[in-house]
Nucleic acid binder design. Structure first.
Lengths: 215, 215
DNA sequence: GTCTATACTTGGATAGAC
DNA sequence: GTCTATCCAAGTATAGAC
């Protein structure tokens, strides 16, 4: 089976092999797991034979690293783009915008980003070590945001809150079906719950529910 | 290497082989992953040879099923024990008690329960299908609790809130080091944040912070 | 209940032709 | 850049002795 981006006819500019391999790898690693995916599987998906993969990547590990790196790049880019043009915002608006950016980046680039959530923990040590710097960088962006929003919290509390928030957002990859990709309502719910709490069932300013219920 | 529960001398009643195999499997599966763990590894940890495992379990898959089942039993038991003796409690107290019960069960039986969090997603299909019923049952306990606490929420919102809350709690297995096992403060933080929101930095009733800061 | 020995399969990686 | 052919390692599972 061929990966179907730009492969329909020879007229559309075909995607480079290196990039195509990366795409099918992200897809397969996520769907079937890293170890369960053989290089023969990947080669088949990419329309070539196993041995040919080594012309583009030096090993299976390096291929996984490339997938995870790409995923982290998507996430960090989204965060930084969301950070622009938020100068006049309220604290909650700022939080909400970043939550939405995270969720959107997570789901719009699913094979790469969800792979990060799913595969990192069980990846070979060599792979994990290669990715840690990128991971740390992304975490530091969230830490800085939360410190800014919650200046009175201890750093331990900030860490816990960050992990809880990110954990809650990432848990959505298991079930949030973006069939028409509207993560907006869920972003609102998450941000609202994080900021105001679940017990305050909707009575805290219109901006919190602005896009939540559109009748 | 031998698993060290009750194996010091022949005087202490030795743990049965079947149970010992289960314990080392939970440990190894969590630490190294399911596929990365060979039956030879498990046998070595359990003090026997690979072939002997088949006297106790019919396959590697069944061994993983047994580990995950045990984990779910721990979790469900803890939830139901927490549910007793909570009749006169406030809503928040009830939530907090269940959060603490979940976290305590999660960390006190770590190899089994964390295995559930880590291994389920990447487990062979046959394994996943076998434990889905147990998983559903545990999720239904939380759903029922949240419905009771938040009667005005839609069922979709309840689902999202449950997944967010459980996701946040489960994320703690990656970093919460229970070196002297005090999950209490973290349970407070999670419950507080979920119920009152992160922005309300401590000004909402003493019961919320009762055990949080003990000077 | 545990051991030894082994059958059988699959996977990552390399070499050299085209 | 891709293919074919192949090497070598490792794993699950089985059979039968003790």
């Amino acid at each position: 089976m061929f990966y179907s981006i730009g492969m329909s006819t020879a007229s559309t500019k075909p995607i480079g092999s290196r990039e195509r391999i990366l795409a099918v790898a992200a897809e397969r690693f996520l769907a079937a797991g890293y170890v369960e995916t053989s290089l023969r599987d990947l080669a088949s998906d990419a329309g070539m034979k196993a041995g040919s993969l080594y012309y583009h990547y030096p090993s299976k590990d390096h291929l996984l690293i490339a997938v995870l790196e790409r995923g982290m790049e998507f996430m960090a880019d989204a965060f930084e783009r969301a950070a622009e043009s938020l100068d006049g915002s309220t604290d909650f608006e700022m939080l909400r915008a970043h939550v939405e950016a995270h969720l959107r980046a997570l789901h719009d680039n699913r094979p790469y980003t969800a792979g990060h959530v799913t595969l990192f923990r069980t990846a070979p040590q060599f792979v994990r070590e290669s990715i840690v710097p990128l991971r740390d960088h992304y975490e530091s962006l969230w830490t800085a945001l939360l410190v800014r929003l919650l200046p009175e919290r201890s750093s331990k509390e900030i860490t816990m809150l960050r992990l809880g928030l990110v954990g809650a957002m990432n848990a959505s990859i298991d079930w949030l079906d973006t069939e028409r990709g509207d993560v907006g309502p869920f972003a609102n719910l998450i941000a609202e719950q994080f900021w105001f709490g679940a017990s305050s069932g909707g009575g805290h300013g219109d901006e919190a529910r602005a896009t939540k219920e559109k009748p």
